[in-house]
Write a protein that binds this DNA or RNA. Structure first.
Lengths: 226, 226
DNA sequence: AAAGACAGAATTGCATACAATAGGTCAAAC
DNA sequence: GTTTGACCTATTGTATGCAATTCTGTCTTT
């Protein structure tokens, strides 16, 4: 939805990012009401860009928007977030298979660099390392989706990933799991390089369902993001 | 995105539906520019609801929206539409499997009624029959997604279905294919009733990939919707 | 003649004012 | 005491006016 540019050229994009960050950081809790006037005053803009940002946030699943009533932070439950992993597993596995049949040598190198950088952060558990791992991980997955050329796979999976940012930090906490994740990525990379679409499919599926399983173990309802 | 209510309580919803219909009916062709002022004048409203409708249309993938530039009808190509089938096949198969493990007797009856009504339209090729088949088919698929309780599956697959409405009419044209489709639905229904998740998965996957294959055969670039 | 820069026009982005609707409160009737 | 109804307030939906940006056409310069 919001273009990849990190620069916010319009006020609406600034508002979007602000509200999104507040939701993901837990400052705006589920079922909190988001009044247009309040937000506009808080951010020093008029209601117009706020309204447009709210529409986009609703489209991306962060809030619920009822006509003539207003916006609330979308309440999420365990089952819902878990379902996003299940769907992603299907989509991204399919995308990995397609990518394996289309990938070029340059793209393999590109992905390899991402893996290198992820491994360089080692298994540190401090917040910065976890965040940069999350970001690199996201880039890796998105890049593979792009290479697959399944446009709707990219759209959909990206949306689901962003929606589940809440849980992303979990996956990168336990050093054992970090090692396992890095290992998955290397196997995946080899599968892509050798055009082994079946293996690419399977390892990607396993990779994501593993994350889903870990999320499942950590009990529902814990939203202790930084 | 737009709630299921057929009544448009706000001007924005009317504008949304109008533009969407014009795109799907071919009146607004790909790469056509959609000026806010032009649309506002054409529909007798101000620019404000038009802007909001355009934001929603962009979120749903019907148009492209560049900041400070404007909106154009999203150009779609064969590969892109085909990819939407591939993704749907994954998602809906997964959803069918989940539905098979959760469905109740009442829900089975409900789905059965939908199948009955689809079969009552027989294999007529006139426009009305095709449209009502399309609509019933949509209801059947959406209902199964709901029963699966995979919330994100419903969101995603519904979006993809609506985006591919262009192609839906194809699948209901050839009498042989209509019979085949109805037969798929019956097998699917039996799988759901007997909680046979593996069969449900497989038949749903086949069902959608069959449609994809037919779409593929009819050559790209044909957008001869009524 | 071609390429670049500048100016004008047209369109989008934002702010503000007004209208319409939903939800709550208070009162009156049963 | 409960319920129903009208009114009132707060918030969203819409319209309009202004500011900012992009596109286009022309003119100049090489």
């Amino acid at each position: 939805m919001i273009s990849g540019k990190s620069i916010h050229s319009t006020a609406m994009q600034r508002v979007y990012s602000h509200i999104r960050d507040c939701i993901l950081s837990g400052r705006y809790m589920p079922n909190n009401r988001l009044g247009e006037m309040t937000l506009a005053a808080e951010l020093g803009v008029s209601r117009t860009p706020v309204r447009e940002a709210l529409r986009n946030l609703a489209a991306d699943g962060f809030i619920e928007l009822k006509p003539h009533v207003g916006a609330i932070v979308r309440p999420w439950n365990f089952e819902e977030l878990y379902s996003s992993f299940v769907i992603r597993a299907d989509i991204e596995a399919q995308a990995a298979a397609h990518a394996a049949k289309r990938i070029t040598a340059e793209e393999v190198d590109e992905l390899s660099v991402l893996c290198d950088r992820m491994e360089q952060t080692n298994t540190d558990v401090d917040t910065d390392a976890r965040h940069s791992r999350s970001e690199l991980n996201r880039q890796l997955h998105v890049r593979i989706l792009q290479i697959s050329a399944l446009i709707h796979a990219e759209r959909t999976a990206t949306q689901l990933m962003d929606l589940a940012v809440l849980t992303m930090t979990f996956n990168h906490f336990d050093p054992d799991e970090v090692r396992r994740s890095n290992s998955d990525h290397r196997v995946l990379l080899r599968a892509l390089r050798t055009n082994d679409d079946l293996l690419a499919y399977s390892v990607m599926r396993t990779h994501i369902l593993t994350a889903a399983g870990m999320f499942r173990e950590r009990k529902p309802g814990t939203n202790d993001v930084s």
